[in-house]
Write a protein that binds this DNA or RNA. Structure first.
Length: 783
DNA sequence: TATGACCGGGG
DNA sequence: GTGTACGGTCATA
């Protein structure tokens, strides 16, 4: 029979000594089904030398065949390798794991130059070859077979794929979850500390499973809920590195399986680094998507949800993790802890609106399933797209090669003019690098070494790229650009709100993929790496931006800063700004736009660091490092406050604020919590060779009988005494007496540096800040 | 100035 | 599972 299926995910098993691919799907009626492919076989290519004795080579390969997984086929084929025609042998076997064994043996045979495409995951190979992508549909001839071991409505055996296409997706069931565990001091240890709360949130509402005496019961209730609700997508935040390993360790301890997949008797298994895969469902860790939000420095769930306007911090319960035992033990406070868990799981659920429509589009472009996509770096996303395209164009996928790092010159940074500026416009080339790659046909396959009559020659570096025919990168980039144009023009016609959102995410995803090509080309791990290509892109980029700077200056604007593909300018005559934008577009053939307008902005002498207030009154802070996790709260907060004062009030006010804070510190008017510096412990404490403060603090905690394990955080406070700072770091919970705290450390190493980073260029010195008037003599001496 | 160790998020 | 992140900062040689 012929039916249509929407693909969610792939997986595979070896059964009866044959590989079996599972295509997890939803059918047109909304049934969850699995389609089984029994006939696909793993293979790889051997690239042949120029004048090969094919018969002899084939014989030698045949000799390698073993009964456990015989070599079933050797075909001679024509392929392209970096655009050049080559002869290859396609070597097919039965069991995927044998590819590894045969590739090593075959590569040693004389007459074979190289073995390629032997390092591609089996089901991804299948999805590439059959052009099946998650979140798209396919029409196929299938036969229903008995369902013995799957938690789906129907099971089909695939006979023949008739077509693949994109269409409106079915409604997918989405569930978010979040666990809380009990641990007093140190880090939670799954061998000891129970899970106390598991919160879930679905479109049907929320639910919490709360531990009474045995958390195994809680986990069972949770896994029953998963089986009953049967979600297609399970969302978590950092779940691949915390929740899943924790739950699995807790159940393993009791010899119980966490059997929640769509294949009966399967557990979440650890796939590629850190990723847990749940058979038949998409286990998506949203932290992976949050990583790409550069505007938020500390990517905690509450920060991300607050930034995206999903759940403002003012409307939720804010607890620090170390307060959890206290709120769990105290009956009156427990309600607050339960609400905290609900707020977290609700945020996680709602983040789907921010991330999933975009992820869905990246998946349909690259073919990378959503669960892997969330963990995959930009490089892998680009690479999956390139690998699909390579198959389409009969291009060989190059092997991964270990490479030595070679630095090359990057984008041009026009040094900032330190100080405060008013009425600043930011002109930004939105897609400078991909445009350059297309314009000059850049890539490893178009690079010409030696003489070339018909080549583009890069400025400064002199690399040459043939003008025609189009290279691999140019071909695919143009496809992306073309499709984006189509999507954008469709967007103008469509009125349906849902369709509009989908198209808008699509055009955004296409743009982001295109912009990632340059970074990919210069990434050491890239299969299509080209140092010369990356070097040429930045060289043409530098040329462009410096010419743009010259042009705007000649028109009477002042350039106060520039970085790679943007220039910051002040305009005396605002009416001319739109004309200059038009002029640049005409002259360079590249799209530039007014990206931002700052009412006020200030630069330090450092590149890539500034803060400004926009026309809309929003404060942007870029590059200042105290917005990081490893500074104490007091230092982080005061840096923010100083920036706000500088932008909205005056330098004097900012200085006053710092002085007041220092005075309060000296008078011991502070909360100890605000002085705690948190660091993570990624190793067992005795594995550390370094004498770092957090390591010493952890050792002291252990000596005092507290359990400290790897994977957790240690908060420390620096106390008075002799010796190095690292030796004077003590676990925060062992410091009860404020008078023991080394106030000078906090002034000199936290408050002063974080605020001086901004105030320095306004002529403020360390002495100005520390001269708090507490010592009258000091005050007069300074005068 | 280069190299290597460390860290993020989660409780 | 035909596999093994990345990019930034800090300490140390």
């Amino acid at each position: 029979m012929i039916q249509d299926y929407y693909i969610i995910d792939f997986s595979y098993d070896v059964e009866d000594n044959k590989p079996l691919i599972y295509i997890w799907c939803v059918d047109k009626e909304g049934n969850r089904v699995v389609v089984l492919e029994k006939n696909f076989r793993p293979y790889f290519y051997a690239v042949l030398d120029d004048n090969p004795d094919i018969e002899k080579i084939t014989d030698e390969i045949k000799k390698l065949s073993t009964p456990a997984s015989p070599i079933t086929n050797i075909d001679q084929l024509e392929r392209k390798y970096y655009g050049n025609p080559v002869k290859v042998l396609r070597i097919e076997t039965i069991i995927p794991a044998y590819i590894r064994i045969y590739r090593d043996q075959v590569s040693k045979i004389k007459g074979i130059k190289e073995v390629v495409e032997a390092d591609i995951r089996f089901y991804m190979r299948y999805s590439i070859d059959k052009n099946l992508k998650p979140f798209t549909w396919f029409k196929a001839d299938v036969e229903e077979i008995p369902n013995e071991k799957f938690r789906v409505k129907k099971v089909y055996e695939l006979k023949n794929i008739l077509e693949t296409y994109e269409d409106k997706p079915p409604d997918l069931k989405i569930m978010a979850f979040d666990i809380e565990v009990f641990n007093k001091y140190g880090s939670p240890n799954p061998r000891r500390d129970p899970v106390i709360i598991i919160g879930v949130w679905t479109d049907e509402g929320e639910k919490q499973f709360i531990t009474d005496d045995d958390d195994l019961k809680t986990i069972r209730e949770f896994s029953n809920f998963v089986l009953n609700h049967d979600p297609d997508i399970i969302l978590g935040y950092n779940s691949n590195r915390f929740d899943w390993p924790y739950l699995l360790e807790r159940t393993k301890l009791r010899n119980v399986k966490l059997d929640i997949g769509r294949k009966i008797n399967s557990e979440p298994t650890q796939g590629t680094y850190g990723h847990y895969s749940i058979v038949g469902r998409l286990n998506v860790d949203l932290f992976g998507f949050a990583m790409s939000i550069e505007e938020v420095k500390v990517k905690s769930l509450d920060n991300i949800a607050d930034y995206l306007g999903i759940l403002p911090k003012t409307q939720r319960v804010n607890l620090e993790w170390y307060q959890i035992p206290e709120y769990w033990t105290d009956d009156k406070k427990r309600k607050i802890l339960l609400q905290y868990n609900l707020d977290d799981v609700k945020s996680t659920y709602l983040l789907k609106d921010a991330f999933l429509p975009f992820g869905e589009q990246i998946t349909t472009i690259t073919g990378l399933p959503l669960d892997q996509l969330s963990m995959a770096s930009v490089g892998y996303r680009v690479e999956w797209l390139l690998m699909r395209e390579a198959f389409f164009y009969n291009e060989i996928i190059p092997n991964r090669v270990e490479r030595e790092y070679e630095s090359y010159k990057g984008g041009l940074v026009i040094p900032p003019k330190p100080g405060i500026h008013e009425k600043v416009y930011v002109l930004d080339f939105s897609s400078m690098y991909p445009s350059i790659m297309i314009k000059y046909n850049i890539g490893p396959d178009t690079l010409v070494k030696g003489e070339c009559d018909n080549c583009w020659v890069a400025p400064e570096v002199g690399h040459k790229f043939r003008k025609s025919p189009d290279g691999f990168y140019k071909t695919i980039l143009q496809k992306l650009v073309e499709e984006r144009k189509e999507v954008k023009s469709k967007l103008k016609e469509v009125e349906n709100e849902y369709e509009r959102r989908r198209l808008d995410e699509r055009q955004r995803a296409l743009k982001i993929m295109a912009n990632a090509f340059y970074g990919y080309m210069g990434w050491l791990g890239a299969r299509w790496y080209s140092k010369e290509g990356a070097e040429a892109v930045t060289a043409w980029g530098r040329e462009t931006i410096s010419e743009v700077a010259k042009l705007v200056q000649s028109e009477g604007f002042e350039v106060i800063y520039g970085d790679t593909d943007s220039v910051f300018i002040t305009a005396k005559d605002e009416s001319k700004i739109n004309n200059i934008v038009k002029e640049i577009i005409d002259k360079f053939g590249l799209d530039i736009k007014i990206d931002k307008e700052y009412e006020k902005i200030f630069f330090t002498e450092n590149k890539k660091r500034y803060a400004g207030i926009t026309k809309e009154g929003k404060i942007d802070i870029v590059g200042f490092e105290a917005i990081r996790g490893d500074w104490c709260d007091l230092a982080k907060n005061i840096q923010k406050d100083v920036i706000v004062k500088v932008l909205t009030s005056s330098i004097d006010d900012a200085v006053k604020l710092v002085r007041e804070t220092i005075m309060k510190l000296r008078r011991r008017e502070f909360n100890i919590e605000d002085l705690v510096i948190w660091k993570s412990l990624d190793k067992d404490i005795n594995e550390y060779n370094v004498d770092a403060p957090h390591v010493n603090a952890a050792k002291k905690a252990m000596k005092a009988g507290y359990a400290i394990f790897k994977g957790g955080k240690i908060g420390y406070i620096v106390v008075k005494g002799n010796g190095k700072i690292s030796q004077r770091a003590e676990p925060y919970f062992m410091v009860k007496d404020k008078s023991r705290i080394d106030i000078d450390y906090y002034i000199d190493r936290q408050i002063v540096p974080s605020t001086l980073r901004i105030l320095e260029q306004f002529g403020i010195t360390e002495n100005t800040l520390k001269n708090t008037g507490i010592n009258i003599m000091d005050f007069f001496n300074k005068k």
